[in-house]
């Protein structure tokens, strides 16, 4: 058993220090994922914190049939989907637009350019963007992504495929 396995075993048995250390270690990974999926820093920070809380509440149910990071990404993905539904209902698109613009501004300040790829990715619906990122950026399988997002693997496949076609069109690369 490596160091992380030992810590996970201790955390599942109720060791608060082991759980706190595990969550701290995985926080940047979760936060980076959420920033890419939401493209909204305040929302990503809120969901990252909520992910930590959900993980604390359900650590005893963690069966260790997947990696700890995968389990956290699954929790975070469900929370992103819930937040997207809620924000759509509450019509908070203006706040989302402002957050996306602020991220774009921060990036422009730091590196002087905002790649067209990010614009195209940002225009995709959150569910499609999430499926593409999980598949092609993080390398998860369709079944795993389906389980994370609560949809059939076939739906994930079509979302990824259609999303990539959409990105190709947006970036003028229809070939």
């Amino acid at each position: 058993m490596d160091n992380e396995d030992v810590r996970i075993a201790r955390a599942v048995r109720g060791d608060a220090d082991a759980l706190a250390a595990l969550l701290r270690e995985h926080y940047p990974f979760v936060m980076n994922y959420l920033l890419k999926v939401t493209m909204n820093r305040p929302l990503a920070e809120d969901i990252a914190q909520e992910t930590m809380i959900r993980a604390i509440e359900s650590i005893a149910a963690f069966r260790r049939d997947s990696k700890f990071s995968t389990w956290l990404v699954a929790i975070a993905s469900r929370l992103v989907i819930d937040a997207a539904r809620r924000r759509k209902r509450e019509r908070r698109w203006r706040q989302d637009e402002y957050a996306a613009r602020s991220l774009r501004y921060e990036t422009l300040q730091a590196q002087g350019e905002w790649p067209a790829a990010m614009d195209a990715l940002g225009r995709l619906p959150p569910g499609v963007r999430m499926a593409i990122l999980l598949k092609h950026y993080y390398g998860y399988g369709y079944d795993e992504i389906g389980a994370m997002m609560g949809i059939p693997a076939g739906t994930v496949k079509s979302r990824v495929h259609n999303g990539i076609n959409e990105l190709r069109k947006e970036l003028g690369d229809d070939a």
Binding site: A16, D17, L19, A20, A21, L23, R24, Y27, P28, M31, N32, L35, K36, R41, A48, M52, I53, I56, L103, E106, T107, A110, Q111, P115, A117, M118, L121, L133, H136, Y137, L167, L171, D173
Partner: peptide
């Protein structure tokens, strides 16, 4: 076409990790 831009974004927007006591207090 896309991964490079995402990698750069990840490098630029390094998340601030809360201190250890924050995680312990949360647990």
């Amino acid at each position: 076409k896309i991964k490079g831009a995402l990698d750069r974004m990840e490098e630029l927007h390094e998340p601030g990790v809360p201190p250890e006591w924050w995680f312990k207090a949360l647990v």
